[in-house]
Amino acid sequence: MSTYTQILYQIVFSTKHRNPTLLEESRDLLFKDIWGILKNKKCHLYCINGAEDHIRIVTHIHPIVAVSSLIKDIILGSNDYIKKNRIFLDFSGWQEGYGTFTYSINEKERLIRYVKNQQDHHKHFTYKEELIALLNEHNIEFDEKYLL
């Protein structure tokens, strides 16, 4: 018997202290590195984007890969890549913690459009406001003091 899954994930994490260090001109290099990590883990990347202080990834995660393990690999690998290649000189690391949200495959196109349009969203909403809306949308209880 084969294993079949169709779970769409949105992964969100931010720079340490939400410092605006992910400069637009070098983000594509970072995104390509993260795509390579996902590919090596047999995950399918649908979309990756972000702003100066955070990243969003829309992906299907291979069934043998634990979400927490994948995110750890992305954070450690991208941190090393940034430092070795000196692409964001003021980057001091990633913030502790992350958000992972699941979606029906029927929401794929809407979710991809949303992630692709991050720069437009952040003209009107901060990352924190967006994260709170996402947590509320998924009925996740949280304490705002941990959202820094």
Rank of each mutant, 00 (worst) to 15 (best):
F91V: 01
I34C: 14
I48R: 07
S2L: 09
K83H: 08
N49I: 02
K72C: 09
T21W: 12
Y127V: 06
F88T: 02
V58F: 07
T21K: 07
K145Q: 10
T102Y: 09
V12W: 01
R86V: 00
Q118R: 02
E96F: 03
A66L: 04
Y4H: 12
T3I: 13
A51M: 13
E137A: 12
I61F: 08
I37S: 04
Y46I: 10
H60P: 03
S26W: 03
L148P: 02
H121A: 03
Q6A: 15
L76E: 10
T3C: 10
E130M: 02
G97R: 01
D90K: 15
E129C: 06
L8Y: 10
L38Q: 13
I57G: 07
I57V: 11
W35C: 15
G93M: 14
K16C: 12
E144N: 06
I82P: 01
E130Q: 00
I34H: 11
H62A: 12
K108G: 07
N79E: 14
R113W: 04
I7N: 10
C47Y: 07
K116I: 02
H54C: 13
G93C: 08
E96S: 12
G36I: 04
H54Y: 14
C43P: 06
G36Y: 06
E52F: 11
S68G: 06
E107V: 02
K72D: 11
T5P: 09
F125I: 07
F91Y: 05
F31P: 11
S26V: 08
I132G: 10
S2I: 06
I82N: 04
I87R: 00
K32V: 15
L76R: 15
Y103Q: 00
L111H: 05
I11K: 00
T100M: 08
F101K: 08
L111F: 07
Q95F: 08
R27A: 05
F101L: 11
Q10P: 03
A51W: 05
N139K: 12
E109R: 11
D143Y: 08
N117L: 07
I105E: 15
P63Q: 09
K39R: 14
V12G: 02
Y98W: 02
I87T: 02
R86E: 06
G77L: 06
H62W: 13
F142I: 13
I75C: 01
M1R: 06
K128Q: 15
W94T: 04
H122I: 05
D53F: 05
W35N: 15
I11E: 01
G97E: 04
P20D: 11
R56D: 00
I64A: 13
I61C: 05
R110G: 05
F101N: 09
H54E: 10
V65L: 02
T100Y: 10
H121T: 00
